[in-house]
Every structure is written in C-alpha cells, then in structure tokens.
Design a protein around this nucleic acid. Structure first.
Lengths: 234, 234
DNA sequence: CCCGAGTGTTAAAAATTGTTAAATGACGTT
DNA sequence: AACGTCATTTAACAATTTTTAACACTCGGG
C-alpha cells in the first residue's frame, strides 16, 4: 500500500519512547503516536485508527496487558506487539492467545522491532484480502431498504438521503438487529469519544432516525434504559 | 544520467549555505535549493521534487531531525544526509542505523560531502527500478471512460477535456473507488498544502467533477462529513 | 411520592460543504 | 508589451450536517 501506516506506541520511559518513535518515523516511514501511559493510550486509540500497536507491559496507571485487552474489545484484528522484560512473558503468552500478535523482550535492538513490525503488517495484509470479514452494507428494515455506502433508505421506491452520521448509526443498529447496541459502543465507534455532549448529539440522531422510519409501524428503535438501543422489526 | 539531480539543502548559516550550494552546483552539477530554516524547507519540499536532501540538524524554527521525519512522512525513499556537530549524532546515529540515509559531522570538507552524495544517489539508482509500482491511468466510471494521461472523460463517444487538477482529483477518487478519499490526502498530494483556501478550491473542483459526471445517474461523488469523499458506482 | 439521572424532541448555533461568479494567474500569440 | 484564453483561486452566498442548548418527559431507587 502507498498509505503511511500508523502505529500506537505506549511506552512510559520518555527517552526510549522518543528514540523508538524517531527511529520508526524516519526509518520505517511510519506515523507514530507516542503515549506515556495506558490510560492516555486507550483514549488516543479510540480517537484514531491505527495499523499496529506496540505496548510496553510495565506502565503506570494501566499496564500493557490490560490495555491490550481493552483494545481487543474495540478492535478484534489490529496487531499488537508487547514489549516486556525477559521472563515476564512466558506465562502470559498462553493467556493472551497471541493469534495475530507478537511480543519482544527488553532490551531489544530497534532493527529487531522494525523487522517484527514489518512481518506483522505483511501478515495482516495477506490475510486481510482473504478473510474479508466484509460486513454487509445493505439492510432490510421492515418495508425499508437501507444502503449504507450510498447513504440512503428507500420505501415504495421513494428514496431518502441520509447524512454520514445518520447512516453510520443506523448501520450499527442494523448490525445488531433485535440486540442491544450499547451507547458506549456507538459513541466510541462513531464519535470516537464517549462524553456527555456526544451522547446528547447521538440522542438527536436517534430522534432523526425514528422520524425516517416511522412510516412502517413494525419498525421501532427502543431504548434500553441505561444501556442502549435495540432496533426491533416485528 | 542525463537529468540534473535536484538537492534540497537546509542550512541556517548563510555563508556556509552559499558556499555549499555554489560548490555543489559547480562541481557536482546539481541543482541546489537552499533553505534557511526547517519550515521553509518543508514548504519547498512539498512543492518540488528532489533527489536528495541535506539537512543541518541545528536550525531555527524546525530542527533537522523533525524536518527529516516530516519529509519521510511524505516521501519514503528520498535519501537524506544529516549534517551535525561532532558528538551530537552518535546516540541518534545508532538508532537510525544507516539504511537509506547518511550523516556527516561538522566541520567537513566539501569533497567529503560530494562523495557521500554520489554514493547515496548511486545506491538509490540501483534499487529504484524494482519499486516502480505502476498505477493504472485509465478508468471506467459507470458509462464514462476516464483517461488520466490524456486528461479527458468520454461517454457515448463524446469526449470532455479536463484540466490538470480536475484530472488529478478524479484519478485519486478512482483509485479509491467506493472507499473514502480523505480531504487531507487529496490536498497534500495535489495541492501540496492542507489549508483553508486550498480546501475551498478543492470544493470547487468537486463541484465541477459532479457536473461532468451527472449524466449517469449511477455515478455519484458522496461526501463523508468531516472526512472526505467517496466515488460510488452502483 | 420525590428526586436525580437518563432520554425524547425541537430549535438555534456552529461548522462544513455546494455552487456560482468574479478576480487572479499562467501561458502562448501577436 | 499587450492581448486573448484558459486554469485556478478567492469571494460570496446557499444549503446541509453536526453540535449545543433548552425544555419536557420517563425510569427506577429511596
């Protein structure tokens, strides 16, 4: 690909972090985001898209493994490299599965790290095309037909254009038809940040979607108090 | 080598800069662009194509390493030579390895610099041919046929000439058919600078392209609010 | 029943985008 | 140099999208 890959680097030692960051940006032509602790890292991760994460295991506030698990909750496939002191990994390795991931023991040479990064990225690139866990982009909602990419719903041949956010939210609801879509999940995936104002903004969009869908009595977006929303088609 | 190589020289000392520039143009038969600081350098770099960069590490406004990283983000392969005072490099040098780049400690003899330039350029010349990933220059967009090099689109035998920027923008959209082309990416690649006015200029071109493509209902350029555009063919 | 947190709805404000026209710039011709 | 022509940028205004604000209502625990 001709696109620059983005790497999230969580490393609490500023010196090492700076050196690694510089090296990867200059030599590996990556765009590197450096975070000093686990909490900052998860916040940044939810705001931007990354192609790979490098997590120091020993960090203040939130250790690398916890961070890794939280990242996995939101993103199932981004490759992760854990950097850890010798001997710390053996037991954990099993636990984490390490499906698409890797680990490297400190101290390591930067060339070694770069090699592993490239290896992981290449592997993702290979499997990416085959697996193509391609989510549907077209849905049936009662009498409505919803096409996500072209951002419109239609009923009886009449089309209604949707804005980007309207389409994204409706898509997430469709992907969980009859299940609960958590407010948190929608906010993190669409707004990239779960806070009060984005929540209110989302409420407005819910209201709009309900308006679009109200011509079919059998379609309903119901609230699950304190948790989220369900798209019901009876 | 029948083409004159272009060198970007970032050096804040006007005397040294002038001497180097003159020497390289005279002795090395290069075309040299001299910049007095890092900010000027990155601006120039985004506007022109260079075969090699020589960056003084200590410069006002933006130091050589930062500049080097920014250059790497845009161009992954142009060789860089860092010029630095003795002792300053040793720690970084290790980190950066010497893969595609080089460094030289001040003070140095101009002959020494010329040697390194020629060495780097020769190395690039060797590896250059392999990369050559050729992108298509002709696209089908619904009923339209778009030829990038001849800068025209045609439908039902009727041709419509495009201006350079129109063609470049349409090409980028085609290369990402059904995916999002980020405003930022288009601006950096075509306008070489992402600012408000270039953004507005791009909007005007989007409007023109939509006009050219509006005879086929199935072709659409849809906006992804806050991100960019998708070229859709249904 | 009362209260606070959570939700529904609407409207206004702010930001972004769409479109058209005028101003500027680039370039070859005379 | 003056001119015509075309490409591009800037300006102006319209329309759309998203966010924020305001107020009403609901839920569920004390």
């Amino acid at each position: 690909m001709n696109v620059i890959k983005k790497i999230l680097l969580a490393e609490d030692d500023p010196n090492l972090g700076e050196i690694l960051s510089d090296y990867l940006e200059l030599k590996g032509k990556f765009e590197v985001k450096l975070c000093a602790d686990g909490e900052e890292a998860i916040r940044i991760f939810n705001r931007e898209d990354f192609d790979l994460c490098i997590l120091d295991v020993m960090m203040p506030k939130k250790d690398g493994f916890t961070l890794g698990k939280e990242i996995r909750k939101v993103n199932a496939k981004v490759p992760i490299i854990f950097a850890t002191a010798k001997g710390m990994m053996e037991d954990k390795a099993e636990a984490f599965g390490l499906g698409g991931d890797d680990y490297i023991t400190k101290p390591f040479r930067v060339e070694e790290l770069l090699m592993r990064i490239n290896a992981l990225l290449k592997r993702v690139l290979l499997t990416d095309d085959q697996v193509q866990e391609k989510l549907p982009d077209s849905f049936e909602i009662g009498e409505y037909h919803f096409d996500y990419t072209s951002q419109q719903i239609s009923r009886n041949g009449l089309a209604q254009k949707l804005s980007t956010k309207e389409a994204e939210l409706l898509r997430m609801l469709c992907l969980k038809k009859n299940e609960v879509l958590t407010r948190e999940e929608a906010l993190l995936k669409i707004w990239h940040d779960d806070n009060y104002f984005n929540g209110r903004s989302m409420d407005v969009f819910l209201s709009k979607l309900r308006k679009y869908l109200r011509d079919d009595q059998k379609v309903e977006i119901v609230n699950v108090h304190g948790r989220g929303y369900k798209l019901l088609v009876s």
